[in-house]
Every structure is written in structure tokens, then in C-alpha cells.
């Protein structure tokens, strides 16, 4: 038990050191703009379709369930506000972040892990370059930039999905739905959600990079690393979401 705790504390310490090195490299030259652009395309743009699907489906299901559930109490009119607020504040950030943890987090750790076991990380060092600058900075920044944008898109698509169900199933006029959404969702909700996702993006990418650098034992190690990253980042996202939500409510509500 104590050994396990010490091991976890060591991992936390090492991730903190990597984060510190990341910040140091981010604000010093050289900065790889080309690599950042490449990573945004690969990690961010590459996740567009799945993000849209998740957003639309969540909006459809939420509106359907709340619509029929609240109809029993004559509360169908509240559906646009409930769906849009829950999507913007919680569901879109959490679902998108968990999805990205699975897609991008595992991808980053597998890529860096494979580079590690084939000595490509050593080659970067042996060629007089810093692997944190070359590999970590572009990936972490790309995830921090992409995830909030993907989440906002996901929430928007969810609200649109909700509109289609509200119109077709509950005969709610589109103008009424949109009006209710606009009066319920404020800019603080949008920026709060983006802030949370920037934090989640940082956690996903830095943990994935860390585990990639720690990968040993060949392909077996790469597999273990990806599983560890998805499980760890998912737990961290879910737990930290509570505290970040509390903080945002304290600040803006």
C-alpha cells in the first residue's frame, strides 16, 4: 500500500518536472511552428468527425429523454435551456475530453513509446536536440488549443441535434428553441467550458508524453503505456472536472 503510494507520488513528481521543462521550452527558442501546425492538423482536425458525431448524438438523446421526461410535468418548454446548459457546461467538455483522451492520448503515448523503444528518442538527444522541445511542446500545445475548440463545436452540434428533435418530436418552433438557448447559455459558460478543456487537454497530452518517455519492454510496453494513459487521464479528467466546475460556479454564478 505504502509502496504503491510512493510509486504514484514519484510519477506525479516526474510529471511535474516534465511540465516545468515543457514551460521552459515553450518560452525559449527554437520554437517549432511547423511541428505545432502539423500536430494541430493531426490531433485537432483529425478528431473533427468523431467530435461532431458525439455532439449530435448527445444532443439528440438528451432532448429526447428530457422532452418525454419533463412532458409528464408540463415542463417541455424547459428542454432547450436544460439541454444547452448541460451540454455546454458539462457533457460536451467531459465527453469530448474522454474521447480525446482515448484517441489522442493513446496515440501520443504509443508514438513516443515506439520512438523510445526503437532508440529514436536517444537519437534526438544524440543529435544535440531536446526531445521535450521537439516532441512534447508541439503535442501539448496542439491538444491545449484543439480540445477547447472541439468541445465548443461538439456543444454547438449537440444543441443543433436537440433542435431537430425538439422540432420533430415535440413540435417546438425553431425560433423559440434558439431564443431559449441564447438566453440560457452565456459567454461565461462558453469560456468556462473552454478553460476546463484547455486544462484537460494539458493533462491528456503531458501524461501521454510522460508515459511515452517511460515506455520499456518493446511492443508489450507500448500497449501497456496506451492503456495506462487512457485510464489515468480519464480518472483525472472526471475528478478534476468536479473541482473546476465548483471553481467556475464560485467565480461566475
Amino acid at each position: 500500500m505504502i509502496g504503491h503510494f510512493k510509486e504514484n507520488m514519484t510519477v506525479l513528481g516526474e510529471i511535474t518536472i516534465l511540465s516545468k521543462d515543457f514551460l521552459k521550452c515553450m518560452f525559449t527558442r527554437p520554437f517549432y511552428w511547423g511541428r505545432l501546425y502539423e500536430q494541430i492538423l493531426q490531433l485537432g482536425v483529425g478528431s473533427l468527425s468523431i467530435t461532431i458525431v458525439i455532439g449530435v448524438v448527445t444532443g439528440l438523446v438528451m432532448t429526447l429523454q428530457f422532452g418525454y421526461g419533463l412532458a409528464k410535468f408540463g415542463g417541455t418548454l424547459y428542454v432547450p435551456a436544460i439541454v444547452s446548459l448541460s451540454l455546454m457546461r458539462e457533457l460536451a467538455p467531459i465527453f469530448t475530453s474522454l474521447l480525446i483522451a482515448g484517441r489522442i492520448g493513446s496515440g501520443i503515448s504509443a508514438e513516443i513509446g515506439a520512438m523510445n523503444v526503437t532508440q529514436q528518442i536517444d537519437a534526438i538527444r544524440a543529435l544535440g536536440t531536446n526531445p521535450i522541445r521537439v516532441l512534447v511542446v508541439p503535442r501539448v500545445l496542439a491538444t491545449v488549443i484543439s480540445l477547447p475548440l472541439l468541445t465548443t463545436l461538439s456543444a454547438f452540434m449537440g444543441i443543433l441535434g436537440g433542435l431537430s428533435i425538439a422540432y420533430s418530436e415535440f413540435s417546438m418552433p425553431a425560433g423559440f428553441y434558439i431564443n431559449k438557448v441564447l438566453s440560457s447559455v452565456g459567454l461565461t459558460d462558453v469560456f468556462g467550458s473552454m478553460f476546463k478543456c484547455a486544462f484537460f487537454g494539458f493533462i491528456i497530452a503531458i501524461v501521454a508524453c510522460y508515459r511515452g518517455f517511460q515506455t520499456k519492454e518493446g511492443t508489450k510496453g507500448v500497449g501497456q503505456a496506451t492503456t495506462w494513459v487512457v485510464v489515468t487521464t480519464s480518472i483525472v479528467i472526471l475528478i478534476s472536472d468536479f473541482f473546476l466546475s465548483k471553481l467556475l460556479i464560485l467565480l461566475f454564478d
Binding site: 520512438m115 526503437t118 532508440q119 529514436q120 536517444d122 537519437a123 538527444r125 544524440a126 543529435l127 544535440g128 536536440t129 531536446n130
Partner: peptide, 29 residues
């Protein structure tokens, strides 16, 4: 890092960057 430009290491398994071409591998340093 600057010392490693003066003492080079040729790896047993070559350790080429597998996501970029031969030209890019050589141009990298």
C-alpha cells in the same frame, strides 16, 4: 547538446526517425 554535434553516435539499430524520409533524417541535424 553542443558537445553532441562534435561527438556523434551511430546506433546499432540505426535509430532512424521512421516517420520521415531518408533526406529529412539527414537534413534534421
Amino acid at each position: 547538446y553542443p558537445v553532441r554535434t562534435r561527438i556523434s553516435y551511430s546506433f546499432q539499430n540505426a535509430a532512424l526517425f521512421d516517420s520521415i524520409s531518408v533526406f529529412e533524417n539527414l537534413a534534421y541535424p
